[in-house]
Design a protein around this nucleic acid. Structure first.
Lengths: 131, 131
DNA sequence: TTAGGTGCAAACCCTTTGCAGCAAG
DNA sequence: CTTGCTGCAAAGGGTTTGCACCTAA
């Protein structure tokens, strides 16, 4: 049978995709309570999980113990404020190797104190196991 | 008065700094139970926190819900296996812009499916607040 | 009718903290 | 002494899950 439709799931996706703040589950929950006063946090978590599996949204990592999500699936850098936890998009052309910290600092009005490059995938062990 | 000395803290730092696996608090705990059968997980967490504040170790982020640590303070890329959670060091010269995914895949025997560049620091708002 | 979606509450799990006792300067 | 370190157990806080009910195809 054809996949079902869920207004709430659509709304959750919309909140994440239309925001530039990389919201957490709890933030999405707070926003949606205005439209769906009875919505449950569990519903938000479950739908976020499914939206991730469906490739509609992705995680940008855990900031201050809370997972943050992004509706922009393109591979791009982020800036994380260590004071308030804000997550800011950095344009791909400003990535490491193309731009200095000073250039990023000026362009995005931030102070860069550190950077981190992470690759994801499967390690040699897991590939051997045909996982 | 001069700062005190703690054999356990030294051992915790040593486990992290001598490992290339980027261990979690729980992994450190498991290792140290061999030398200190009565050590508490709380002690591991407290000392990790202090070692971080002292700049002896740093966090490499949260993998599968668990924080991982690195005794190599240099700014370098990592590879995270999405199957088993392994964290592998990537040499700085292989960072984005200097190396293709294929080159990384071959050199480190991994399969790269994604990458992420993160800058850390203070955002404009927080700088205005003189935080 | 029937697989999937939802709310609620409890469970989970990693991490932190309060407290009393211990150890080192 | 006096400050810091430790173990224990409990508390915290974000996320997941079991269950019964509801909803859309």
């Amino acid at each position: 049978m054809p996949p079902k439709h869920s207004h709430k799931r659509d709304s959750i996706a919309e909140v994440i995709c239309s925001s530039k703040a990389h919201p957490s589950a709890d933030t999405v929950y707070a926003v949606l309570r205005e439209s769906y006063p009875s919505i449950s946090l569990a519903t938000v978590y479950r739908n976020i999980s499914q939206l991730r599996a469906d490739g509609v949204i992705k995680s940008v990592g855990v900031v201050e113990g809370v997972e943050r999500y992004d509706g922009d699936l393109s591979d791009h850098p982020h800036f994380v404020c260590e004071s308030c936890g804000a997550v800011i998009d950095i344009e791909p052309q400003d990535a490491l190797g193309n731009s200095s910290d000073e250039q990023i600092a000026e362009k995005y009005n931030v102070e860069v104190t550190g950077r981190h490059v992470v690759y994801y995938g499967r390690c040699g062990n897991c590939r051997e196991k045909n996982k």
